[in-house]
Computed example of a mutant assay.
Amino acid sequence: MTLQGSKGDATDVHSKTASLVGISRDEAKVFNYARIYGAGKNFAQKLLLQFNHRLTKSEATAKANIMYKATKGVKKSSSVYGNGEKLWSGGSESEMFNGLEATAVAPDPRTPVLGCKITKALQPQNVYDEFMTSRINWVVQSSAVDYLHLMLVSMRWLFDEFDINGRFCISIHDEVRYLVKSEDRYRAALALHITNLYTRSMFAYKLGIYDLPQSVAFFSGVDIDQCLRKESSMSCKTPSNIHSMQGSYHIADGEVLDIYQTLKQTNGGKLFKS
């Protein structure tokens, strides 16, 4: 699902979760992220009831149990580390949760990649086995911050090294935006793709994974646009902008370039100025 799944043929993780319990892909997406951030079966049950008012409480509970067993798995005693601790097994995400919990309960919890420490307020010697949801959430969110920091450093270096006229503008959740001189826009897009390759490689290496699938090595697409909008093809018609971006401001749709289109626009992947 992670390496080869795609939204188009309904083989990605969100589509699989949706078909498992009979909900829409968008609803499954809410479940999947909530689970990764530490939400439990009770939360899943409430969401199912919210999404489908015809479900009974017992039916929602049964569906939540099916979903969690298939994804997070079941905790079983294991002798993998020689101490008989309980680990998640049997689910598509069991290993991920074992890794998250191992970091959260370590004597000195640090993010796996840049080694950033957890706040003293949540260190194991102060809270023992309490606040596990928050501690696991910290591993996820702070690792995302590590990802952002590595990207910013890589982009700054590539811009300086190859004389790309641009600067960091803003980061919003899982997006980074750059202001770039128009003539350098394709080289900047290539720099973003390369930055993702470098950052993904760093994460994989630090986690003991010494290979990187192409499906996650590059961005699925880099937006090139003249204005700040969610998608570069949105008309942005609103009560105060009834003529759209094109009609009111003569701003045409932007571009979305995958790695192949970016290579084509940069003469096979040249970062130097022509």
Rank of each mutant, 00 (worst) to 15 (best):
T2G: 11
T2Y: 10
G5T: 00
G8L: 13
D9P: 08
S19L: 04
G22A: 10
S24G: 13
R35M: 02
I36S: 06
K41L: 11
A44F: 07
L47E: 03
T61D: 11
N65W: 13
I66L: 15
V74T: 15
V74M: 14
S77A: 14
L87P: 08
L87Q: 15
W88R: 14
S89H: 13
G91D: 13
F97W: 10
L100I: 15
E101G: 07
A106L: 00
A106C: 05
D108W: 07
R110I: 13
P112H: 01
C116T: 10
K117P: 09
T119A: 12
T119M: 15
V127C: 03
D129L: 02
R135A: 05
V139D: 00
S143I: 07
V145E: 15
L150K: 02
S154F: 05
D160W: 10
E161A: 08
L179G: 09
A191G: 03
T195Y: 06
T195W: 03
L197Q: 05
A204I: 01
G208K: 03
I209M: 10
P213N: 07
V216F: 06
F219P: 04
S220W: 03
G221A: 10
I224V: 12
R229A: 07
S233E: 00
S235W: 05
S240W: 14
M245C: 08
A252H: 09
E255M: 09
